[in-house]
């Protein structure tokens, strides 16, 4: 009986196909199989022995049956695996639906800026790109023949109509149509008659205005510092006195140079700082021009979208934004 078991184990270990299994089954469990033969040998034994012998044969028979079933399952699994292997594909090949499109870095930047200010409770407004001189300058405390007009070289349509040189006219448009408090940003295109490596005759700004009772310069610092730290990461922010005719006090805002970390490099002209924003408390004359009551005041700010995008994505030439080279655009998918 021991030999039969050994023989079976040797055979089943070598079995590779279902046909092998069938043959092994016939050889051991068939009518003339080795196990059946064993039963035949039982005839000459005593009752006790017969009982014992029979028990062992049945054990062997059970063992063989179980082993065969197991082996058969095993073989089936291997088969299945083999047939799947045969269907192998190159999983590194690119997808059917490529993500080939892209959002322009200017739009991407505007969306990001909008999202930050919206989360702070700012509304989003749109303005006109062709504006009256009155809205672009006079209502903003820049009368005709004011030297501040030199800061912005203007495209004119006629004597009173121009391409807006900044998004600030939207301040007036909104304040004329809405009672205080107001709290919004307004992104859009602006135009200046200027074109060189760092200037484009058209570029984008985001304007911001917050008017309510009892707004302080310190609030302006708080809101803009938070915004800049969200947009650029945790950078130092500093406020520097400056001049805009429509704000008083006015400030320019610098962030620690994100290229060199403040050590000084070509991008920050070795100052360690990058100028990114202009802002200030809305000039009393501007509030008077839109007939806002005396108890209201607030702050305004304006930023250049291209500058933010250039710093964020490390773009070194403003021309790239408007050439629309697909190789450039597709980097922003």
């Amino acid at each position: 009986m021991y030999h039969i078991k050994k023989e079976f184990e040797a055979l089943i270990a070598d079995a590779k196909t279902e046909e092998d299994i069938k043959q092994i089954k016939a050889k051991f469990l068939g009518k003339k199989g080795k196990v059946s033969e064993l039963f035949k040998q039982m005839g000459g034994l005593g009752d006790e022995q017969k009982k014992e012998f029979g028990k062992n044969i049945n054990k062997l028979k059970q063992y063989i049956e179980d082993s065969l079933t197991n082996k058969q399952t095993q073989i089936k699994e291997i088969r299945k695996k083999e047939s799947l292997e045969k269907e192998s594909i190159d999983v590194t090949l690119p997808a059917r639906r490529g993500f080939l499109g892209s959002i322009h870095p200017i739009t991407k930047t505007i969306i990001e800026i909008e999202d930050i200010f919206k989360s702070m409770g700012f509304d989003v407004e749109t303005g006109y790109e062709i504006e009256f001189d009155r809205y672009n300058f006079e209502m903003l405390n820049i009368p005709k023949e004011h030297p501040a007009r030199d800061m912005q070289d203007t495209f004119y349509i006629n004597d009173n109509v121009l391409l807006r040189t900044h998004t600030s006219p939207t301040q007036i448009r909104v304040m004329e149509s809405k009672k205080p408090p107001v709290m919004f940003i307004s992104p859009g295109k602006v135009y200046r008659r200027d074109s060189d490596i760092t200037h484009s005759p058209m570029f984008h700004q985001v304007e911001g205005l917050l008017i309510d009772k009892d707004i302080h310069f310190s609030d302006l610092k708080g809101v803009l510092s938070d915004f800049l730290k969200i947009f650029f990461g945790d950078v130092p922010v500093r406020f520097r006195p400056s001049y805009f005719p429509f704000t008083e006090p006015s400030a320019e805002v610098d962030i620690g140079c994100i290229i060199c970390g403040g050590k000084g490099c070509r991008v920050c002209s070795n100052t360690g700082y990058l100028e990114v924003l202009g802002c200030g408390m809305v000039h009393p004359n501007v509030l008077k021009n839109v007939n806002y009551p005396d108890e209201y005041n607030g702050f305004a700010f304006g930023l250049g979208v291209e500058r933010f995008a250039m710093l964020k994505y490390g773009i070194d030439n403003i021309k790239l934004f408007f050439e629309n080279d697909i190789r450039f655009l597709k980097q922003f998918s």
Binding site: D212, H216, K221, V223, R238, F239, R240, P241
Partner: peptide
């Protein structure tokens, strides 16, 4: 403010009640 230094003014955050 400019003679004191703008950095002498601590940042704060405004509370504004506005409608959209």
């Amino acid at each position: 403010a400019r003679c004191m230094g703008y950095d002498k003014i601590a940042p704060t955050l405004p509370v504004v009640q506005t409608s959209f």
